[in-house]
Every structure is written in C-alpha cells, then in structure tokens.
C-alpha cells in the first residue's frame, strides 16, 4: 500500500499517476451524476424487455431482432398507419370500382375522389412526358385539347393507358406509317404537303398533290384528311399537329415518320388507379362523351 499523496495546492488526493511532473488529481464525478447514470442503465434493461432492442443472428423476430414483449416495432407502426389510410380510402374505392363513369360523374364525392387520385398518379407517372399540366410537347400529345389519336372517351383513354401505344403488350395500340422517302420524289412530297396543309388552311395546292394523296394516303387519313381513330391515323384537317404544322415539318413526317411509344401501364398501376387517371385526363378539357 502506497501512502496517500495529496496535491499541495488544492489539497485534493492524487491518483498516483504522474507524467512529466504533472499529477492526475482524483476528482470523482458527482454522486448525483453517478446516481442518474445507474438509473439510466437500469432503465435500459426495462427498455430491452418492452421494445425491440438487440439484433439477432438467426433473423428471428421482426426483421432480425428481439421484438420486446409489447410487440411494437416501427414496421408494425408503419403498417398500421398505412392500413388506416387504406381503410379510409376503401370507403370510396369500393363504390368507385363498382360504379360506371356516368354514375361517378354525377356523384360529387366520387368524382372528386377520382380527380384527386388521378391528379396525384398523373404527376408521379405521366408528367415526365406529358408535362405537369398535361400540355405535352412535340411528339408527346397535349391531353388538354379535343384532338384524340385513339379516342377521347373515358373508356378509350383507359385502354390507351392500360395497354400503351406500340408497347410490349398484345393488346397495345399500334399504327405505323410507311417511310415515303423511297417511294416519292422530293417534289412529289412537297406537293402532297401542300395538299395536306390545304385541309386546314384552304390554300391553293398543285393537283398532283391531291392525286398522290388520294392514291397513297387517303386509305388511312381519309380523303378529306380527317384521319381514322380505329387505325390511329391522325386527323390532318384540324389545327393541331402532333409533330408540327409547318410545311417542312409535314414533309419530314412524310419522308421518314416518327413513331412515339407509350408504355403499357397495366404492369405498374392498379386498374383502379388507371381508371382514376383516365377520368382525370378526361377532365382536362377535351374529354368526349361517347
């Protein structure tokens, strides 16, 4: 036993440790602090019993840890709150799924439910190409107007969303326009473009343009240029142009047509969500009745 060494200046006992003449004083942590520390240690034992605490090697329990005797975990809390939301939605969803569009459209609550669900799904999935307001861009159709390639009723829109356009699905909507660059000479293409423009602008066109159009194009686009939704042939007589309405843009589309692709959303979205989306798109302003 070494004798008790006290620091001369402060009168405090030293621990006996000394480095280069500097001695460590023995100033223990206050009693109250130690008391609190011990209480927290005891508290933690209770905590292990009640709540999930220790990871386990076996992976037993919820997500590989001890579960605690209450069974509460963050995962179960999440599942519970999600179930609560689903239950709240279910009140509408059951009625929504059973109702026809006419019935939904006549019901304030259901219609608002469909629009809210559709708007949120649209921003998550569709806005990337069609824009947040559904206004589209060149090559991506504007969903606000009244010009529909494949039909603008709720049912037609629903089918388009579900199976897509030129998508990887047996029932997908499909159309293909041949590349006329190899068939027509450049001046012939120019004449056809002039004729196509005359549908909507009533301008003068070369007769050869009409002859060639009637021969090669009218089968799909119709003699008066109104197109054919069944084949997905665009209406050429209105004020809306998918790939641009300038003569050069029309010529380019005759030479080597561009063909856009829309995915079939049935693999990603539920039928209910697709129907809500269809009703939302239908409500943007150009929706057709039948």
């Amino acid at each position: 036993m070494s004798k008790i060494d006290k620091d001369e200046h402060s009168g405090v006992e030293t621990t006996g440790h000394e480095w280069d003449g500097i001695k460590e004083l023995n100033n223990p942590a206050p009693r109250w602090w130690l008391g609190v520390f011990v209480i927290t240690v005891i508290w933690s034992i209770g905590y292990w019993v009640v709540y999930p605490a220790w990871p386990t090697l076996s992976g037993d329990g919820e997500r590989g840890g001890t579960t605690g005797n209450t069974g509460w975990t963050q995962y179960s809390q999440l599942a519970e709150s999600q179930a609560e939301i689903m239950a709240r939605r279910a009140a509408y969803l059951d009625r929504f799924d059973a109702a026809t569009f006419e019935a939904i459209q006549a019901d304030n609550g259901l219609y608002a439910f469909a629009l809210a669900g559709g708007a949120s799904a649209f921003k998550d999935n569709c806005a990337t190409c069609h824009g947040t307001g559904g206004a589209g861009a060149s090559g991506y159709p504007n969903l606000n107007d009244d010009d529909w390639l494949w039909g603008g009723t709720v049912d037609a829109i629903e089918e388009t969303i579900k199976f897509g356009i030129r998508a990887n699905h047996d029932e997908t909507r499909f159309s293909e326009m041949p590349a006329f660059a190899d068939i027509f000479a450049e001046d012939e293409i120019s004449d056809i473009a002039d004729y196509v423009l005359s549908f909507s602008t009533n301008t003068i066109y070369p007769t050869r343009g009409k002859t060639l159009y009637d021969e090669q194009c009218s089968l799909c686009h119709a003699e008066d240029g109104t197109g054919d939704r069944f084949q997905g042939a665009p209406n050429l007589s209105d004020a809306i142009w998918f790939y641009g309405g300038k003569k050069g843009e029309i010529e380019a589309q005759i030479r080597r047509p561009k063909h856009g692709v829309m995915p079939n959303w049935n693999v990603r979205l539920s039928d209910s969500t697709i129907r809500q989306l269809a009703i939302y798109v239908h409500s943007l302003g150009g929706g057709e009745t039948e």
């Binding site: 307001g133 504007n142 606000n144 107007d145 209105d238």
Partner: peptide
C-alpha cells in the same frame, strides 16, 4: 388562371383557357 398550360389550341383553331 391556369399556370400550365396557359392556353390550349382546339382542333377548330379556337383558344381555350382554364
């Protein structure tokens, strides 16, 4: 007034605002 789209051209050339 709608912010997006600001206006929509309809097939008969008329303009629609939301």
């Amino acid at each position: 007034h709608d912010r997006n789209p600001l206006y929509v051209t309809l097939s008969d050339g008329t303009i629609r605002n939301g």
